[in-house]
Design a binder for these strands. Structure first.
Length: 220
DNA sequence: AGCACGATTAACT
DNA sequence: GTTAATCGTGCTC
């Protein structure tokens, strides 16, 4: 299980967003100080690019602030922010230090730690366990405490592993989600990437009756 | 100091 | 299809 190095994130943001599809997001979660951390993980199936101060949908559009400072820092760190008064969003900082850009992780396909993830999601059906940006932070127990954490450091509790490459034919490009008040052209730029749900990738990795699955679907 | 709104979700009709 | 929930942030006064 090779962890993605900082050089993976130190690239053009659109390239990183596309390359993240099919990779495994891993959260090592210790229930208490002495417990062995449990592995919660899923394959990234949707992501979105936010690129620089010129991008009016990007939180950096008005320059550096207390909230967005992590985006100005080195790549390979988590930018986690709070929105709508109740939701946490997970992003990965990209490009060179000093240039504010990040990839929002919008959906994962749960693979490991299903039992815990279900509990964290209050037993909602598996198909809607982590299929949204705020749902996956709930399922993985990620909040503002992770803002600024290094995904590429020595013993990270949050990181990405190389996993299942996604064929270009299975990738869909479209406008970013939820930019209702963002002016054009930013509102419509096709900076959202996702794995087509009818693709072979989904058929291969989505288990038959996930609702009955007790253990993990890992390995792969 | 006040205010409008948000990179959303769940529960409605 | 619509809307309430809920509060930090950044912008305006």
């Amino acid at each position: 299980m090779t962890r993605l190095p900082r050089s993976f994130f130190a690239r053009p943001t659109l390239e990183v967003a596309r390359a993240l599809l099919g990779q495994r997001l891993v959260r090592l979660r210790a229930a208490n100080r002495s417990a062995v951390p449990e592995r919660l993980a899923g394959l990234i199936v949707e992501a979105e690019a936010y690129i620089g101060e010129d991008d009016l949908a990007c939180h950096a559009h008005a320059g550096p602030t207390a909230r967005n400072q992590v985006m100005y820092g080195p790549p390979g760190h988590a930018y986690v922010y709070f929105t709508y008064g109740m939701h946490w969003m997970l992003n990965f900082v990209t490009e060179a230090e000093g240039f504010p850009a990040a990839v929002l992780v919008r959906a994962i396909m749960p693979m490991s730690g299903l039992v815990t993830m279900r509990r964290l999601r209050r037993d909602r059906p598996d198909r809607i366990l982590a299929d949204g940006p705020a749902k996956l932070t709930q399922a993985l127990d990620i909040d503002g405490a992770f803002n600024g954490c290094d995904l590429c450091g020595s013993r990270p509790s949050l990181f990405v592993e190389a996993a299942r490459p996604v064929a270009e034919s299975a990738v869909r490009y479209g406008p970013r989600i939820g930019l209702n008040n963002t002016p054009e052209p930013w509102k419509s730029l096709p900076w959202n990437v996702k794995v087509d749900q009818t693709s072979e990738f989904f058929k291969t990795h989505t288990c038959v009756k996930r609702d009955q699955q007790q253990g993990d679907m890992d390995v792969i």
